[in-house]
Design a protein around this nucleic acid. Structure first.
Lengths: 346, 346
DNA sequence: CTGAAAGCGCTTACAG
DNA sequence: CTGAAAGCGCTTACAG
């Protein structure tokens, strides 16, 4: 396997044409000596170096994507959506996993900065100033899933975390459950904050008090969900229901509940934010707040393509909020007293 | 937010030094007018364009990774491993999802070719010739998880699929189960082929015949596993046990079994290749053949770093095969007659 | 259609 | 330590 470094010049020499002609061939334009050029390219295994092109054109045709947790199936779906759109626009993707750490995210973003034309970011934290720094260097920025203070200056796609969590709480309350608990995410992140707010807001409207011990702030990780659930199970009065603010924490909570032999929904009901594989296969199936993750990724991709390809330089920002839906399975118990009340109505 | 395109030259002008000095500062070397340069950089939000650097240095410091299915948690773990190593070596990653399609993979790989110094590939199919084409252009290639014909010319990291599947079959046979079935992956992929071979080889050694109807070739997807399981459940004699050749197909099979109300392990036992989240939470827990996915990714990353950074130009290839382990949970029934036989021995 | 030539923004041997 | 200058491999207005 030879590894000679062949350039457009070498191809031109072999095909007896100028470098301009080879370049035109590569760009798909018609040339006279097409066959000779093709043969020369094949002969010396020529592949044009993209960075030379980038330098000439002043753009890299690459977009960076920074997500807080690559292993979360929600982000996997988001990535698929983004990738679909980017591929169609012939933009390359640079992925970075921030691992829910602002330090890692900061390093990653600044490392990416000189490489990409645009950046799709799900910021770990709302106080993050990196999106603004990036924008200031001329890099196009689209926020997805999570926002930052000053988000009004950016294109973004989110879901209605508040409404979704409000809906989750109402679902539990309407089922007649009491002594509600919540395993929340970091409150300095958009979904962490909004989901807690939506949940508490519904409780407040329905005149339901949530005991402070039943509000646990965790970290969106599976182990965080496990630990939080273990704490809830140690409280004097077992909560009647728990709302887990993301899928990984739901899985962690389930593992804990499973190990302690607590019965769902007999002893405790559970609703999770974000669907996950097997949510319908575990017994009972887990009721979740679902959202169109892949669609969300596609929209974020489209916003980026508009800025990069369609030359959308409008200062008017496009900001999209997608709705969530409740997927009812078997993890929420309907209390007898409540059932009868419903029955009488029917 | 200004988006002026500032260059090293503009910085040099502002700081009253030469571009060489600015470049040296950026490379971390000591310069006299450090403060002036820092101020100038901050003033005009300067970020060096990496492609100009790449052109000058003749390398992009980017590595492409092509995996057959980004949404598979196994590949997510693999990616985390690769990313960890690449970050430490200051190499950027370009991810591509081949979606188990050779067409998509081919396009992706050729699109990536001019961008990267190296390529880590889990080829969709063993007849793939893209790794060789890539290598011929001087791009460093490391194969991971899956191989191609001619793999002896490459560095690679795989797991012992044959031994793992052999172990799965032996586990079922030793439990006294009969009428075994297998949901296999595509036979033109390395894990698809090797896992079927390992399974059948164990059956053969133990003089167990697998009925042709009980060998179903699927596609490593969840829906493929579902459909395959549905077919197995329609056979005249329900299989005593089924071996699913990857985690997504196991999940699909579980969903099908669950819907049809068939009891695990009472009516059918199940073993899956590759662990997955919730495998220990579903009831019963699913017995799986597990492998060190993140470790595998790290090793693949290391091989690449050696080629790119340590200038390992040896034609001697490093080829690593990792072992698998059986994680026993509750999805395999031990037949009474067999138990007594074992008991007598003890 | 074609080729000669300039230039994209960096880095680095060179001379001081 | 410093600056002037060459050059990495492409693309494209320019003139023919």
């Amino acid at each position: 396997l030879e590894t000679t470094t062949t350039t457009i010049r070498e191809v031109a020499r072999r095909a007896n044409v100028s470098t301009a002609t080879v370049s035109r061939y590569l760009a798909g334009r018609p040339i006279r000596n097409r066959e000779a050029v093709e043969a020369a390219i094949a002969e010396c295994n020529f592949v044009p170096r993209r960075y030379a092109r980038s330098l000439r054109l002043g753009r890299s045709d690459m977009v960076g994507v920074v997500v807080p947790d690559l292993t979360n199936p929600y982000f996997a779906a988001l990535m698929i959506g983004i990738e679909t759109v980017m591929k169609a626009a012939d933009l390359k993707l640079l992925w970075v996993n921030a691992a829910e750490s602002q330090t890692i995210e900061r390093e990653a973003l600044s490392a990416l900065l000189g490489y990409v034309d645009g950046l799709i970011i799900a910021p770990v934290c709302e106080t993050d100033d990196l999106p603004e720094l990036a924008a200031r260097t001329g890099t196009k920025v689209v926020l997805v899933d999570r926002l930052v203070h000053g988000s009004r200056h950016f294109d973004w796609v989110t879901v209605d975390n508040f409404a979704g969590s409000h809906m989750a709480a109402m679902h539990l309350i309407r089922a007649g459950l009491t002594n509600l608990a919540i395993i929340a995410g970091p409150l300095d992140s958009t979904p962490g904050r909004e989901r807690l707010e939506g949940f508490l807001s519904a409780c407040n409207e329905e005149a339901i008090t949530v005991h402070p011990d039943n509000i646990i702030i965790a970290d969106f990780s599976e182990s965080g969900g496990y630990t939080a659930m273990a704490r809830l199970l140690l409280t004097l009065k077992l909560p009647g229901a728990v709302f887990c603010c993301n899928n990984l924490m739901t899985i962690g909570a389930l593992r804990c509940i499973n190990e302690k032999g607590v019965d769902i929904p007999g002893e405790i009901s559970i609703v999770g934010f974000d669907d996950f594989p097997l949510a319908d296969v575990v017994k009972p199936g887990i009721t979740v707040i679902s959202r169109p993750a892949e669609e969300q990724g596609k929209l974020a991709g489209h916003l980026m393509v508009e800025r990069l390809r369609r030359g959308n330089t409008s200062t008017e920002k496009r900001q999209i909020t997608l709705p969530t839906t409740l997927v009812s399975r078997g993890s929420v118990r309907t209390c007898p007293t409540h059932v009868s009340r419903v029955d009488k109505r029917a």
